[in-house]
Amino acid sequence: MRVTFTVNGRRQEADDVWEGESLLYVLRERMGLPGSKNACEQGECGSCTVRLDGVPVCACLVAAGQVQDREVVTVEGLADFAKERDTGAAGPGTDPGAAQRWQPRPAGPATELSPVQQAFVDAGAVQCGFCTPGLLVAADELLERNAQPTDADIREALSGNLCRCTGYEKILDAVRLAAARTGTEA
């Protein structure tokens, strides 16, 4: 079947989608957006967390056909999404052709990060990084709802995102840091 939906601000189309495919598979294998991760595919790790019409969900548990005409934000679009939220300016979105041909580029000062992404880098919250995309989407949504969360709030909001490397301490640091920085700017 054909599925058409908006990803990171751009209309995208996938053809020949098998009806049993998940949104996660379509993002990763058909749209060149593998940032959402395939760690458990049963909703027990949060690594594939995306925003579906603004709501954080596990992309592995959304059937591809269910996202027809809906809006998805993935970690690849998080910086633009956050910027748009803060400034009201729409980001450029991700071009599907370009995404498919994508190659990593050297990270440098040119890379624009959202506050929560920057905080994860700065606080040492990234080790292997496989849980990071899902955590970023979840943490960004937490801070959108609750700009000054307590530690208990952070833990509850991120309790659906497993990390095997960090012991979560630096992740807490990162969310606190992002909250503090955003609070200072506001």
Binding site: T74, V75, L78, R105, L113, Q118, V121, V126, L136
Partner: peptide, 10 residues
Amino acid sequence: DGVLKTTGEF
């Protein structure tokens, strides 16, 4: 590799 890991590009 920290930045690439947060943008989903790693």
